[in-house]
Every structure is written in structure tokens, then in C-alpha cells.
Design a protein around this nucleic acid. Structure first.
Lengths: 243, 243
DNA sequence: TCAAAAGTGTTGTAACTACACCCATGA
DNA sequence: TCATGGGTGTAGTTACAACACTTTTGA
């Protein structure tokens, strides 16, 4: 045990962001190409160090979100994933990172001309398939973020954070299918989401795209927790109680 | 944005532990009485600073578990809750804490004579009722730990971590009742837990206590995730979809 | 032989899966 | 008028809450 006038060793604190969005019905994560060592040229999650001694960690996440992704706090979900503190995770020295999960509605363009033009949306399947290597322990952080998103779709209204202010039920279903990586029966999905009071509320208008019957538009309701939950079929890491 | 030769501000990193156990069918948390300022004399979660520059954060949690609670890593559940990084959470300066949730089987005695004799098991209901104040933001951390434990009982085999190597179904039920703060129908509980393959496996022996039919003894099985989950009745923060 | 604790059976219901079917629109 | 996407109806099944009932023990 440390003695009386011992002082604890300081560490550097970073914030990393797993920012998910839906583009062309597929789950994408925002990655940057690193311009400096270590891992220069590699892909990494956006993030950075705490800026000054009194900066709140959550505030730092919001700041990075603005600087690196040009994303505003409004209409955006942000929650902490956890701290990553292995001693050798950063070759520059002792850096502990607090990771955040952010969910954004599909943006019109991949943010050119901003401070962070080197950022780009990457399909998550690319990384899962091992076709892209990530710097540091960012692959672990991404995996944790994906699992968190998957599990929160079951029991919370998180899915609406992927959508614009108004959306169709089909668009909402595409969120579930992209994040869970499964196909859902659209007819059962329609009733299930509408059966949960205040999950989505009809906005009165309709949207017509090409042929086919126009779809009703909805907006997110007040409900944040879904009960009963929408359980994903055949969860990846679990099997049925009695096989 | 910081310029080229700017260096990030260092912070002090602490580890705090929410250690739950069951004593006399009630959920208890390990608290210490602080011997030094700030908050001298107040109750606080056990924890401490990172000991040296290269210490792994998880390893620090294990070390504190040993030093402050005399608990070994074997037969003990330990998982990270998250980082707590508000700038004013510690009056001594910038301290970011990584909190861990630990679950221990009921210990014989509250650990006298050890390095951490000032530690004592406190009923969680005492703190929830506001009859005990906690130092720093430890009340928030405790709340988060309790919610995590509650939710993990639903979908994982965490409950067995509260029990000794062998246990009766009734003892397991008491875990659920104490953590969730509800009463369960023992007859339905019996079948539900036994229906999940490899959640608990019979060990052959029985236990007899006073009068009444002896109970079969079980041990924890290999299964870690429960599917379908054991959902808690009337979750505190949620209501039914259609009221 | 009775109280107490352990454990089983049964019934009604909620919520789901699977799939047949109907509706509204543009080409 | 037909292909296309939006939406409803219904039957069989699973999981579960509620509660009556049987079993095994100590006093």
C-alpha cells in the first residue's frame, strides 16, 4: 500500500467516439485516417485528448463530435461505453480512453470542407469482415459499441435516433435489420412497433416514392424504454434454453 | 483546436468498487468509513488511485478488491460500470474514476483484522432510503451499479455469483428478490430456472434445515446468457405498451 | 399426524411467428 | 391493369402468471 506522502501517477485522458449512422440501408461508422504517428495512415475512431484541466469528459465527447464530425448535440444520441485502460494500448505513453457511442440520422453528404475532411463513413460489415484494420484497441471499442447498440434496440427507443424527424415504419425496420444484421417480417414489425404506446406517433402526412401505396409518416414519441422488448431473433451469442 | 506542440493535461485516475453481496436475504454493499479528508468520516465506496504508471485499470480493481475487501479474484464476478469524469467530483483536483461492479457470495464475517477493517457491509435499502450519505459522486455510482446488477440478472447467469459453490433454488430466488426488490412466486421460479439448460445443474446432494422437505443442491452451469430472459415484474422505470 | 418447506400440474392469457390476404398508387 | 410497396387478418405456438395440489421431512 502507498505510504503517506505518495502521489498517484498522472495519466492522459482521451475520448473516442463510435458514431453510427445508416447510409443506403447499411450500418456505417465514422472513421478518420490518421495524419500523425502512431498508426499514421491507419483508420481510427474519431477522438482526442481532454483539452484542459477542468473539461468535463462528456463535454469533451460533445466537442469532438463537433470538431471531428460536424455534428450538433441536438437530435443526436450520446452515451458512454466505458473506459479502456490497458497500459500498452497507446505507444505514446499512458493514455486511458473513455469511449462514447453516438447515433446520428443519415447525413446528406459525408462532410466535406469541414475541419475533419479526412473523416469518412465506413460500412461496419467491412470492418467485421476484417477488410479494414483499426488503430489502437479501436476494434474492441467498435465491437463493444455495436453490441451496445444491438442490445439497446431491443429495450429502448434508440432506433428512432437513426431516423430523421419524420420517418416511415419501413425506414425504422431498416434500422433494426442493419444493426442486428437480420431480416424481419415487415408485417409483424408494423404491428409490433405500433403496439408499443408512444414509441412512434403518426404525424398525419404521407410520403410517396415512385409507385406503390404511400407510406404514413411517424415521429419519435415520448417513450424511451420498450416493454415488452423487441427481442432480436437468434441472438448471435446465445442459444435457446432447451436446444 | 490545439496547436502542434500542445500537450494534453494529465489527470489522476482512480478505481472505485461497488461490491454487492447477500446477507440475511438482503442486498448489502461494502462501504468504508473515510479516514482522511476530503469527506473524512463519511461513507464511501472502496477504491483508490492507480498505483503506478503501467498498472492496468482492471488489475487495479483486482488489487483494491484484495486490499480493501480481502476478496480473491476466483469465485467472484467483476465488470466495469464506466468512467465518472465530472470536473468537480473530487475537491482535491482532477480525478477521473473508473467504477467496477463486483458480486461476491455471502462472506462468513465482515472481515475483521484485515488491512481494511474500517470496511463494513451496509444494506442497500439504507442508502436508497437516504438514511446514509455517500462521499463524492458515489451515490450515483451505486445507483448505476444497482441498475446494472438488476438488468444483468434478467439476461445472464450473474445471480449464481451471489451464491456459494452449491446452493438451493430457494437461495437463488432470494438473490433475485433482494436485488430486484420484488417477491416472486417460488413455484414458477423453480420451473423457469430449471428450464434454462445449463443455468444450474443438480449436484445430487440435498440440504436439510429444521423441518420441511430437504432441498436439492445445485451448482452454477456453463451457461452465461439466459434466453429467453427472466424479466423482472413491473420494471421500475417502464410501463406496459398499452396501458 | 400436523406444520412446514419442496416441488408438480393445470388453466387461462399475452405475445409472438408464419403466412394468406387486401389496399393504394404510378407506369 | 398490373407491378409495387403499404398495410390487415388469422391460426398455431410459446412463455408465463396464478393458484390448486402432492411430496417429504422434523417435531
Amino acid at each position: 500500500m502507498p505510504d503517506e506522502d505518495w502521489t498517484p501517477p498522472p495519466v492522459l485522458l482521451a475520448v473516442d467516439l463510435v458514431i453510427f449512422t445508416l447510409r443506403e440501408s447499411a450500418l456505417h461508422v465514422l472513421l478518420i485516417e490518421r495524419g500523425v504517428d502512431p498508426f499514421r495512415g491507419s483508420l481510427a475512431l474519431p477522438g482526442g485528448f481532454l483539452e484542459h484541466d477542468r473539461e468535463d469528459v462528456l463535454a469533451a465527447a460533445h466537442r469532438e463530435l463537433r470538431e471531428e464530425a460536424d455534428l450538433d448535440a441536438s437530435r443526436l444520441h450520446l452515451e458512454q461505453l466505458g473506459a479502456y485502460g490497458a497500459p500498452d494500448r497507446d505507444p505514446r505513453g499512458r493514455v486511458v480512453s473513455v469511449a462514447y457511442l453516438a447515433i446520428a440520422p443519415g447525413l446528406p453528404e459525408p462532410l466535406a470542407g469541414t475541419d475533419a475532411a479526412r473523416a469518412s463513413w465506413t460500412p461496419v460489415t467491412e470492418i467485421l469482415a476484417g477488410r479494414a484494420e483499426l488503430a489502437f484497441d479501436h476494434r474492441d471499442i467498435l465491437d463493444d459499441g455495436l453490441e451496445r447498440a444491438r442490445s439497446k434496440l431491443e429495450s429502448s427507443a434508440l432506433a428512432t435516433a437513426f431516423c430523421a424527424t419524420t420517418f416511415t415504419i419501413n425506414e425504422l425496420q431498416q434500422v433494426y435489420e442493419a444493426v442486428w444484421g437480420v431480416e424481419l417480417d415487415l408485417r409483424n414489425f408494423y404491428r409490433k412497433v405500433q403496439a408499443v404506446n408512444d414509441f412512434i406517433v403518426p404525424v398525419g402526412a404521407e410520403r410517396r416514392v415512385g409507385r406503390g401505396r404511400p407510406a404514413r409518416l411517424f415521429k419519435a414519441g415520448d417513450r424511451t424504454t420498450l416493454y415488452p422488448p423487441l427481442v432480436r431473433p437468434i441472438p448471435a451469442t446465445t442459444t435457446k434454453g432447451n436446444p
